[in-house]
Amino acid sequence: MDSARRLGRAQIDVLAQLGVSTVLLGGIYALIAVGLTLIFGIMRVVNFAHGEFLMLGMYAAFWAYDLAALDPYLVLLGAIPLFFAVGLLTYVLVMRGVIHASHNAQIFTTVGLSIALQNVALVVWTGDFRTLRPWHSSVVIRVLGTAFNLSQVVAFAIAVALTLALFAFMKWTHSGRVMRATAQDHDAATLMGIDTDRVYRLTFAIGIACVGAAGVLVSPLYAVYPTAGLQFVLLAYVVVVLGGLGDMVGAMLGSLIVAAVEVLGSYVFGVAWKEVFYFVLFIAVLVFRPAGLFGQRGAETLGV
């Protein structure tokens, strides 16, 4: 075989690997972002503490594995209702009071929550980086010249399943319809007899359950420490702004775009510079299409 042909084959392998990595990463990002965009779409609040709930999910998985040798996928079953309850509690204690307040009040309430949660984790669990390595994180699967590990695949599959379940919930259940109605027009929904407080409570709880589940899912892949949520939440902001804040399908597409930028950027320019690309993309989108790539023009100036 001549060298040119072998080169061609190798390049196809690289492209396939990059493509698979993009999709796997994008699926997980989507689950993080979809909760953020759901909360924004319905409550009109950007949850600056979103990453901290992810961090708590990662810690939950870490401790369950460390203390009781429970597999993260088993922990997930308990984590979803647990984070749903955490979301409910957070809404009642923290968010309800500022739901009709100004943007600034909402921004700083969630920022305050973020600082408090991060540092509770620091005080309770120290700043050490902790990793958990269940058996499946060292199983490598090779298909058609691409390689990825089993934890990544399972995390992707579960993340996609949960995201689709959320879509189905929003589309076909009564609660989902009520939530969409509230997102469309809060006042009209109230006039139709919808208890918006209940809708907000449910929305926040679902959003937190999603991101908590995502935290459990990524725990075999990334180290956990008190500010572990930050890297993911910055990324989730990029995703939801790309897709249009509040747009759930946009968030899915945005996740794939961000994952592609990250994977390609790391491959071409090295891992050290990968974040630059999505932040530059982020600023470019904010400047040129602030309502998102697929969103309605002008939404950003309404301050929604």
Binding site: G112, L122, V123, T126, G127
Partner: peptide, 19 residues
């Protein structure tokens, strides 16, 4: 870990003041 204590107070104070 106690280095974080004052930040917990910050965060909580911020929420309470805003509210």
């Amino acid at each position: 870990g106690f280095a974080g204590t004052y930040l917990v107070i910050y965060g909580t104070a911020l929420i309470l003041v805003v509210r």
